[in-house]
Amino acid sequence: MSEVVLREVTKKFGDTIALDSVSSYFPRGKITVVLGPSGSGKSTLLRIISGLENPDRGDIIIDGEEVEGLEPYQRGVAMVFQYPALFPHLSVYDNIAFGLEPLKLDKKEIDDRVKAAAETLEIKDLLDRYPSMLSGGEMQRVALARALVVRPRILLLDEPLSHLDVNLRTKLRRELVDLQRRLSITFIYVTHDQDEALEISDHLIILNQGKVIEEGEPLKIYLAPNSIESARFLSHNIIVINDELISFPPEAVILDGDDEYGVVESIYPARGYGSIAIRWTNNVIYAYVPLEQIQNLSQGATIRFSINYELVRKWGKRGVGGGELHRV
């Protein structure tokens, strides 16, 4: 269990700036999610924490200690990759034990740890198999087991679920949260999927073009982002009213109310909540509708709603500054 602090970390690859003076905090024993579109520098951030890359400038501080120049294992980190990166020539057992051998543990200890991890991740039956015989989910469990057996202080996860199908992804990420709660290891989890980020994070960092644009409690960020970029990235409604740029999450549209009215343009049913597009004044906004209500709607129908102005952010004419609540 450790905390990580980054101070003004900068990394360039040639002319492109991957990380631009990033300072952020990864709290002890929590899940911190780094969210960002592809190319935002989030993987680089992870690799710099792990020690696979060295920053051009800035400090990485783990538990109050500057770790520059330390090798990954010296930092007490383990990592799970986007692709499971299992060794095809080693059995599941040997793959899990892979990181233990350099620790010079005795055979019994290794065996115990491998078996325990396999138990935790429910892959006990697979120990004699080879990676080519496993499904995608099984592989990622093995990769997780391999990372956990070395008892890292920090577990780095680089979009570990992005290659799995949707159902499995949902299942596994809940398991991941459970696992973290049980082990209380500091997780640093990189993803581009905002649902995933909101679902599992204790602490959220949003990265865009190498810069931290949000950092803090996930729900707060979601409901009240600090910049127009985050609002856009979080798929908020962004509209111009009276020459003013404003944004609010779809949740701010309350269909029970009757302050405003608009026309239903499109209906997108989904599990749990569907969403609808509403033409309102000159804009199109999106709102969530519980599934049982969505079938009562029809395209072209007029719909009455209210806006929860507590969730509206105002960005001024140029879309900068703001943060005050306004009545439109």
Binding site: S50, L52, E71, P72, Y73, V77, A78, M79, F81, Q82, Y83, A85, F87, P88, H89, L90, F98, G99, E101, P102, L103, R146, V150
Partner: peptide, 24 residues
């Protein structure tokens, strides 16, 4: 990824050569 994975788990040098690279 496989090479990075070995680096993360402190499997390096000659040992990495024998354990990871040559078999692959």
């Amino acid at each position: 990824e496989l090479l990075e994975a070995s680096e993360v788990f402190n499997v390096r040098g000659l040992y990495r050569l024998l354990k990871v690279i040559l078999p692959l």
